[in-house]
Amino acid sequence: MNFTCDLKAALKKRSLIAIATMCFFWSVSSLMVFSILPVFMTEELGVTPFQIGWIEGIAVSLAFVAKILSGFLSDYIKQRRILLIIGTATSLVFKSLFALATSGLSIFIARSMDRLAKGVRSAPVDALIADLYPKKIHGISYGLRQFFYIMGSVVGSLIAAILLRVYNDYRLVFWCSLIPVFFALIIVVFFVHDASHHLHGKARKFEWNKQDLKNLPPSFWHIIMVSSVLMLTRFSDSFLSLKAREIGVSVAVLPFLLMGYELMHAVMSLPVGWLADHMPRKKILMVGVVVLMLANTVMIYATSPNLVLLGYLMAGMYMGVTQSLMSTLIAENTSPHLRGSAFSIYYFTTGVSILIANLLAGYLSDRYQSASAPFYGGLFFSVIACIMLIALVRKVKE
């Protein structure tokens, strides 16, 4: 059991590196926009926190609807790559709407279309990794993909902070976000390919049947139940930014806070992905949930920039512990010809939970006129998830 050797072996896999690099550029573009979008909405366009909750909740839920359809479709047509191309090209087209936005409605349209584009490509890329590589390296493969994706978030946040500090022009940052999407499109067109050999479980012929969904193992549904409750804590990062602003953190510093969050996420993804190949996953999930409870507690009582930074870092740690692990569990607890469909179900339940989480966060923020209020909800649901995890995850295949 050697992390360095396993990582070197993963880095030699060209298709995995191409997928990871594509994800990196997707993420750079997204964070160039989303690290400053909440402040742009509230301070430039006059959007209220409750409206942000609706915009974020509906937009993210639309993304999960697209993930559902793309996952089932990728199983139906037995191709993942074409959906990656469509999703990336669509994102390139609609990212420009952020730079042209003049109202909350226009931001809603831009956010929704961009999230739809993300949704089209998400389930297929997860299923493609499982198609290409054997089960014994799923953990490190998803961890590497997640590491590249989150490092893209760090780079995107940094670029946004620098451009905003130098030019003080939100719209310029939004226009520049088109560049990394273009690079991602080049990579997916020329360097990403579907699995040509069915060595690792990809179906040889079309086998999809809706009746098969009834035969998904109990362990899969246990994962879905726990993840659904966990996602009730996943309201938008916008509410983290609003908490920071409430205690006096400047707009120019916000991208750096988000960069710290994403950097912690990235740092945790690789070792956790590797550990998922070598130790019981119940223990890893439990650590993540405990970290989440602590993160919400810190944000509730934070009264200084240092405590807010700690809250951001702990939230990033939670994400790093759980995200690649959930992909690994979904991939390994489903039949090969239903992988896309399984990820679709996962994304559907996640989307519903995130919609509820954002609406609840927006309501609590407006109702109590406090940026701390959403984190009480996050703490409550993280405790519930911890209880469910103790009761259910012992049945998941370790």
Rank of each mutant, 00 (worst) to 15 (best):
A89T: 12
G53E: 02
Y76P: 02
S103E: 14
A117F: 13
I68M: 14
A66W: 04
G57W: 01
F64R: 07
M113E: 13
D75N: 08
I77N: 11
L116A: 11
M41N: 05
A59W: 01
I36Q: 06
Q79P: 01
S91F: 10
E44T: 11
P38S: 06
A110W: 03
T88L: 06
T48S: 14
E56F: 04
T90W: 13
I85C: 03
L45G: 06
I55M: 14
D75C: 07
A59V: 08
S35G: 01
E43S: 15
S74K: 05
V60G: 01
R111T: 09
G119N: 05
A59Q: 02
R111E: 12
L92P: 07
S35C: 04
V47E: 05
V60K: 00
E43I: 00
E43G: 11
L105R: 10
I85A: 00
A101V: 05
T90R: 04
S70Q: 06
V60I: 13
L73K: 10
L84N: 03
G119C: 07
V65I: 15
A110V: 02
I82M: 10
V120L: 15
E44Q: 14
T42K: 10
K118G: 15
I58Q: 04
L69S: 11
L37R: 00
I58H: 00
S122E: 15
G57T: 05
F108T: 06
I55S: 02
I86D: 10
F50C: 00
S112Y: 05
T42V: 11
V47K: 00
E43F: 09
K118I: 07
K95I: 12
R81K: 13
G53F: 00
K95Y: 15
Y76A: 13
A117L: 13
R80L: 11
G53S: 00
A89D: 08
W54N: 09
I82R: 07
T42I: 11
P38W: 09
I86E: 11
F108Y: 10
I68Q: 04
K78A: 10
I82N: 09
A89W: 11
S91W: 02
A110I: 02
L73G: 05
I68Y: 12
P38E: 11
V93Q: 09
V33S: 04
L62A: 12
T48Q: 02
G104M: 09
R80W: 08
S35W: 04
F40S: 00
V65G: 05
K95D: 15
G57Y: 03
L73E: 12
E56S: 13
F108K: 03
V65P: 06
R80C: 12
A101H: 01
S106E: 15
A63Y: 06
W54T: 09
A117P: 15
F50E: 11
Y76I: 13
V65Y: 09
S96G: 10
S96Q: 13
G119Y: 03
I85W: 07
S70R: 01
V60R: 01
T42Y: 06
V33E: 09
F108S: 09
V47A: 01
V65A: 13
S96W: 10
S35A: 11
V93P: 08
W54S: 04
A99V: 02
K95Q: 12
V93C: 15
L97T: 04
L83Q: 08
L45N: 01
R115L: 08
G104S: 14
L69N: 08
A99E: 09
Q79L: 06
S103Q: 09
S74P: 14
I77F: 12
G53N: 00
